[in-house]
């Protein structure tokens, strides 16, 4: 398992090098979006309207942070469960989104999209929102402000610690439960 220091935007070549289990320290700009924001993004696409950020090479972080206390750019900011966004994710990868960050398992359609479009799924540690927030140096709402914690924010991150959970070659890091046939 390798370790990488990567900076956004991500390229095809960078992403194809990554393997499930690799550790990545990510820097640059990433965009927050969870359930409500994804729904709005799909509506924009359906209406042929531009998205509020450059989707090509982008990294989307599934997070709804707590409000920033005085003197900090953001509150607690760990990942939410990714599976709820599965229905939207392949379309975003098709448009050039190179990675998503969350926690928990992705469905077959997302894993196929990672292969088809050259993208990865990163896991961040769930329930470590205070710790992860220390890697975020700036946060700005760029769309859907009315959604509150679910608004789209541009986050500036420095060495944000991630694990490659699903790579673009069909491999997955999560272990299968032993002994029970699901």
């Amino acid at each position: 398992m390798a370790e990488y220091n990567l900076t956004t935007p991500l390229t095809d070549a960078l992403v194809r090098d990554l393997r499930a289990g690799d550790m990545v320290f990510l820097s640059g700009t990433i965009y927050t979006a969870r359930d409500a924001a994804h729904k709005r993004l799909m509506e924009l696409l359906d209406q042929d309207k531009p998205l509020p950020f450059e989707i090509s090479g982008s990294v989307i972080y599934y997070v709804g942070p707590t409000p920033a206390p005085p003197g900090r750019p953001i509150g607690s900011a760990g990942p939410t469960t990714s599976g709820r966004m599965d229905i939207y994710t392949p379309r975003l990868h098709q448009l050039g989104c190179k990675a998503t960050i969350g926690k928990g398992r992705r469905n077959m359609a997302v894993r196929q999209a990672l292969k088809d479009y050259g993208a990865v799924y990163f896991g961040a540690t769930g329930g470590a929102g205070a710790l992860l927030s220390q890697c975020i140096t700036a946060a700005k709402v760029i769309a859907f402000e009315d959604l509150g914690p679910e608004a789209i924010r541009a986050l500036t991150v420095v060495n944000f610690p991630l694990l490659v959970v699903n790579d673009s070659h069909g491999q997955e890091l999560y272990v299968q439960p032993k002994g029970l046939v699901p």
Partner: peptide, 28 residues
């Protein structure tokens, strides 16, 4: 080692939350 690393992060997280007053998790 991956499991140990997670436990390590969770320990750092609760220490930091207590020290700074930041919520332990963004899902409060």
């Amino acid at each position: 080692p991956a499991a140990q690393e997670i436990f390590g992060q969770l320990t750092k997280n609760y220490e930091l939350a207590e020290k700074t007053g930041l919520p332990l998790c963004q899902d409060t």
